[in-house]
Computed example of a mutant assay.
Amino acid sequence: MARRDFPYYRGAPVALSATGWVLALGGCVAGFLALILVPRGPLGGLPGLVAPLLFVILPLAGLTLGAGRGWMALFPRPRLLDILIGVAFAPLVLAVSGVVAFVFSRLGPAVSNPAAVIVAQLEGMRRLVFIGGTAPQLLGEEIVTLVPFLALLTLLHGRLGLSKHRAIAGAWILSAAIFGLLHLPTYGWNLLQVLLVIGAARLVLTIPYLLTKSVWSSFAAHLTLDWSIFALVLLGSARA
Rank of each mutant, 00 (worst) to 15 (best):
I178C: 00
L191G: 04
T134G: 11
P76N: 12
G158Y: 02
W227H: 13
A220C: 13
R10P: 03
L81F: 13
L122Q: 07
A67E: 13
A12R: 15
R69Q: 13
V144F: 01
K213P: 02
L235V: 08
A167K: 02
A101P: 01
R3W: 13
G41T: 07
H183A: 08
V144K: 03
R3A: 10
L181C: 00
L223C: 09
G27K: 04
L150S: 00
P148S: 02
L195C: 05
Y209W: 12
T134K: 14
G26K: 01
G66T: 08
G11Y: 08
V87C: 11
L210P: 08
L203P: 03
P91N: 10
A30T: 08
A24D: 02
A67V: 13
K164F: 10
P47N: 10
G170S: 07
R127A: 12
L122I: 07
L43S: 06
L203K: 03
I118G: 06
L46C: 07
R126V: 06
P114N: 07
S217Q: 04
F149S: 01
R239F: 12
P91E: 11
L195N: 03
W172Q: 04
R79E: 15
W71I: 12
K164E: 12
F149K: 00
H157F: 00
L162W: 15
R202A: 14
G62S: 09
T224I: 09
L234D: 04
H222S: 14
A231F: 14
F104Y: 15
L156V: 00
R79A: 13
A201Y: 04
G62P: 03
A88G: 15
W216C: 02
G26A: 05
I85W: 09
A240E: 06
G31Q: 06
Y209I: 08
L33T: 10
G45V: 04
L92K: 07
D5R: 13
L139Q: 04
R202E: 14
V99L: 15
P185E: 03
V197H: 07
P47V: 08
A200N: 05
D226T: 13
S217R: 01
F149R: 00
L192S: 11
L25R: 02
L128H: 05
S112V: 08
I229V: 14
A176T: 05
G62K: 10
Q193D: 09
A169P: 01
P185F: 06
T64L: 15
V144W: 01
L156M: 07
L153T: 01
G108D: 05
L138C: 05
V194F: 06
R239G: 11
A61T: 14
Q121E: 13
I198F: 14
G199T: 12
P52Q: 12
V119K: 03
G48W: 08
S175F: 00
T154I: 01
I131K: 05
V233M: 03
G236H: 04
G161D: 01
A18G: 14
